[in-house]
Structures are given as C-alpha cells and as structure tokens.
Design a protein around this nucleic acid. Sequence first.
RNA 1: GUCCCCAUCGUCUAGAGGUUAGGACAUCGCCCUUUCAAGGCGGUAACACGGGUUCGAGUCCCGUUGGGGAUACCA
Length: 486
Amino acid sequence: MATELNGPVRVRFAPSPTGFLHLGGVRTAIYNELLRLHCGGVFVLRIEDTDKARSDEAMTRQIQDALSWTGICWDEGPFLQSERLPRHAERAAELLAADRAYRCFCTSEVLEAQRAEAQKQGGSFRYPRTCAHLAADEIARRVEAGETFVVRFRAPDENILFFDLVRGDMEFPPESIDDFILLRSDGSPTYHMSVVCDDIDMAISHVIRGEDHLSNTPKHVPLFLAFGAAVPTFAHLPLILGPDKKRLSKRFGATSVEEFRAEGILPQALYNYMALLGWSPGEDREILSRDEMGRIFDVDRLNASAAVFDREKLLWMNGQYILASIVEELLPHLGPFIHEAGLDGADPARLATVLELHRSRARTLRELVQSVIPYFRDEVPYDAELCKKFLADPELPVHLAALRDRLAEAEFEKDPLEAALRAVAEERAIKPSVLIHPVRMALSGATGGPPLFDLVAAMGKDETSRHLGHFIAYLRRGGTLPEHQD
RNA sequence: GUCCCCAUCGUCUAGAGGUUAGGACAUCGCCCUUUCAAGGCGGUAACACGGGUUCGAGUCCCGUUGGGGAUACCA
C-alpha cells in the first residue's frame, strides 16, 4: 500500500483526562506529532473531558505537563471539549432538522431487556428502530407530554468504506452499526457526536488514534458524510501489550509518563523508544532524535500488529542517552534524584566530576545519582561478605597503612596516584592488584566502579586518608563493627 | 455469543514471490581491563498450523489455532 502524503496535515491528539498520561497515549501523541513534523501543518491538542464525573482540571494539567516533558509540542489548543457542548447540541439539531437523525422515546430499561434477549439468542443487538418513523404529530405530542427522548442517527444501509493508513481499505457492512445515540436524554452529546463535530470544526485531516476506536469508525464515517464534511484519513494504531501479551497493566510496573520520569528515564529516551514500538524507520539505526524521526517518518511503516512493551530495552536506550549526554545536559533532570539521595548540599563541581565517572554505568538517572553517594559520606559501610578475602590476608592492614602514608604526600591526580600505588606495591613485593581492590572497597564499599585512580582522585586527599584509616581499623578488628566512633 | 483486527528469534523489528531470513534488546562466550560498566568480536534463537495459487511462498488466497479489540444514554 503506497500512501503518498503531500501537503500540510491537521492532526489532533484527544486524550480524556481520566488519569495520568498512559504509554499508549504518549505513543499516539508521538505519531501525531511525527506526521505533523514530516508533512507540516498543525497539531491540535484537544482534551475530551465531557465525562465530568471522571475528569478534573488537575488531570488536564497533568496531561499537558506529561506531554511537554516528553518533548511533544502541539500548535493549537488545548481545547476543552466540555466547552464545546452547546456547539455539539446545535449540530445535532441540524441533523434532526434534516431528518438525518430522529427522536427516540425508548427507555434504557426496555432497550436493556431487548439487548439481553438478543445476546441470549446468540446475536448482536441493534436498536430495532422502534421510533425511526414516528409521525410528526405523535412526536410533537410526546415531547409536549414531557416524555424524555434521545436523538439517534439514521445509520446508512450501505456498506461503510474508509481508508486506514495502517490497515488499508476498510469496509464494514451496515449491520456493524445501528442507529446510535447522538444526544442523550439530558441533551448532552455522546462521544461519537462530540468527536466528529470537533474533528470537522477543527478541520482534522488525519485521525491517528488507538485500535480500540477502529470499531467506532464505521459510526463516525457516515456522520462526517451526513454533515457534508470531508472524511479524514484514519490510522488506527495497534495496542501496547504487557509481557503477558495482554493489555498493558500496572502489575508489570510503570505505565504512565509520570512514573518513568520518577524512575529517571530521560524524555528523549522515552520518546525514542515509544516511537519505535510500532514504527520502524526501515534502517538499522535505532537511536533517533525527534527531529530525525520527523524527517523520515512514513505512515506506511506503521506496524499493524500489537507490540509488547519491553522495559529492558527502554532501560538500555535510556543508558545510551545518558552515555551520549554531557553532565551539563543531564543536570536539569537530576534535581529530584539529588534531593532523594540527600546530596542537595554537595559541592557542585565535585558532583559533576563523579557523575561523569559513573555515566556509563547507569541505566537510569536515579541509578546514576545513587551510585555517586559514596563520594559524599563520612562513613563507608563495609559488607563482611564482600570483604572476606581482604580479612583473610593478615598482611593487608600493614600494606594499606604504608599506602595511606604514601598517598598523604602524593599529588591527587590520576597518574601520580597510580605511580604512587605501584611504587608501594613494588617496594613491598606485592602485585598492585593486592592494593587496588581493597582500596576500592575502603573508599566506596563496593567491588565495582570506575577506574580506581579516577575514584581516588575524585575522592580527594582527606577523604581517602580517612576512609583508608577506617578500613584498616575495620580489618584489624577482623571485620566487626566499630564499638565507637574513632 | 456476535462483529472486527492481528500473527517472523523470548521481546521490538527488517523483509513488498527467488535472502546463508538481516538488525536491536535480552541471553551465552571471547577480547579489552585492577573491578564494574561502556565498547569490540562471536554464539544460541523465528517465519503458529493446514490447505491452495505458483516453476518457486515468510511474502498472495482460504481455513484452523492463538492473541487482541468492540459490542453503553463511557470516552
């Protein structure tokens, strides 16, 4: 299916503010933005907050913040659908006047019973058009009598055709929809009425949304037609699945933008990863910026099958972004993690130095900041299990004491430090590694980390001396905790 | 139940009738290295099944199975 998209588009992202921005939502927003970036045009943000019971202003704010954080930019809006309700009712009235819609006095109780019966028979329920052809005077009389009614659309009896960028030409038989409701008995528009009305008023050319709307589309298409409006081109994106191949749910971890942000995922990484979950640039490269993707975005490359969200790969990609960023670029995102780690008062220059040392070792910003805590604490906690082989060497405290004395007069730069340690090792006829590993343990409490002499240099003379002193004492005590502060 | 959609390594995917079925994550091994990462090199690993169509099918058609979605006076 070759799809030549030329000229500017008008796209929209229309979330309902019923919670945090979900991964599926971000991805939909991303593809909207990418199409807009590729073709030029306008990206509209519309908040579908007509369900007052489930929407509130804070959530609306929340969604905008999450989009902005992710790096998604819209050109127009946000428009609140709730503010357009009178317009929707007005347009429904036009349909009523043109006899493309009609008043239906059937109560939901009656309909419910009919529905239950139809399902018991093993079929699907369609509104039986009980009120489709009431006489004008009867309608007038019942309205006059105060009977409540809904407004129903006269669904077409022909096949419904539309084009979907992901699935190609779609054709639905008329039975797949019924005379669905446009206006509820309280006069408020239903979702179908609102979306179509807004998409027309906002001149939306391409509707990119989740696959869960695919079966709503046969309702929307004839509505566009009834209004004499151009039917937009659709793109129904497959759903995002969890590791169990079921709809992504909380029980496998984070599902909202907020949560990934709180874990220390960079916005660019989330954007990049989500864009590739269901779309591929057709080349082997996977690390792509928003602008690059916008340039090469091609709707033909949207995948039609559902994708499993792979947290591991997101983490890997985030690591790639951390690795590719300089500390100055990372810093604006680090605030909450620095606070969480209790490093608010840390010397900024020293913080930057050690963050740099650990950049290639972290997959999230949280991990990165956590890994740097050892440089800022007074006491290093030693794990007897990890220190086992150091405790087994009775000579070690003596060697380390000698090293400590030597380092006290060394220049605290990487190379001189290394020279000093090697000299001590040679004098004492031991291998450098006999000193290297315990020094790492003494200073960081860990067995892994950045190159030792970077670590020592970053730690500084005073801290190094103090930690070494503590560690030597710890070894001499045989690995027990200190009885009191020395 | 009914309608609709989907189906390549464990996962994301490339593949538009003829490929040793390619890449990435994960995994395993090796190299680098004082360690842990990062990086480099290599390995394991896939066309759900059954029928067609065709000289030839991962690619086209039908069916089966499996998964998902929709079946509201929710959006």
